[in-house]
């Protein structure tokens, strides 16, 4: 098991004349918290979408957990243990908080005919609800939660299937400082329990505290990979951010 959990090699993707990703590569080692940073428009979200199968890559290969998943659909990747959240916390507003967790349980087709929320589902969800301190809102509709709570809920939901790699797209954007700390704690705890993270984030303090290594993307290509303190002094990175 020496191979990395996720290996993205020379991936390109264009939208019309815009080259969102150009020959970009990135590796996520097992049990790391890897950060993916870069200025706006550098291709971070496109990279997420390509990895998770929401967008096909024009070229390049993606391997996850030893399998080639370059053309895999999101549903298949989820069952393989790769799950993600979205920049704009996407939860199902007209389902309850509990149902939002249950629906992410990764059921087989046969299981679809079981109870909407069975006892086992409730137990599985309850553990996460306690962990994320959402038990008191379990029966509310997700549309009734605050934005920060929705982010937590979306995060909790992708853990329902015991993923190997969780990809978080800006977990702290638009969230109050207390919630940022909560989010950080959850990531640390889950990391300690063996889950690998790949995180897109603009909050540099958050990245510096939490992540190692850091991958910097600029104009669709990775320009630096290394320890967080090395990033701050790297001239190429400074150039990309400050646009000298």
């Amino acid at each position: 098991m020496t191979t990395a959990l996720l290996e993205v090699a020379n991936v390109s993707r264009r939208f019309g004349s815009v080259r969102a990703l150009q020959d970009a590569s990135l590796t996520v080692e097992r049990n790391s918290i890897t950060a993916l940073i870069g200025p706006n428009g550098s291709g971070k979200t496109t990279m997420f979408n390509v990895i998770t199968g929401y967008l096909p890559a024009d070229s390049g290969t993606i391997r996850f957990d030893g399998h080639d998943v370059t053309r895999a659909k999101p549903a298949i990747l989820y069952r393989r243990g790769l799950s993600r959240t979205f920049q704009q916390a996407r939860v199902f507003g007209h389902l309850t908080v509990q149902e939002n967790l249950v629906v992410a349980g990764g059921f087989s087709v046969a299981q679809l005919f079981g109870r909407r929320v069975g006892r086992q589902d409730r137990e599985r969800a309850a553990a996460l609800l306690v962990e994320f301190r959402l038990s008191h809102v379990a029966d509310l509709y997700a549309s009734e939660l605050s934005y920060g709570q929705r982010k937590l809920l979306e995060f909790a939901a992708v853990l329902m299937s015991q993923p190997k790699l969780v990809m978080l797209d800006e977990p702290t954007a638009g969230v109050n400082p207390v919630m940022i700390e909560t989010m950080e704690q959850h990531i640390r705890q889950l990391h300690a329990s063996g889950i690998t993270f790949l995180i897109v984030e603009h909050d540099m303090n958050f990245v510096m505290r939490l992540c190692d290594p850091v991958v910097v993307l600029d104009q669709g290509h990775e320009i630096f990979t290394g320890a967080p303190d090395a990033v701050q002094s790297n001239p190429a990175v400074l150039d990309a951010y400050l646009g000298a």
Partner: peptide, 17 residues
């Protein structure tokens, strides 16, 4: 439950299995 998820956000639903 699955249909409700599909109706609300099919892409997201696919992404959580």
């Amino acid at each position: 439950l699955s249909l409700a998820a599909v109706r609300a956000d099919e892409d997201k639903a696919a992404g959580i299995g």
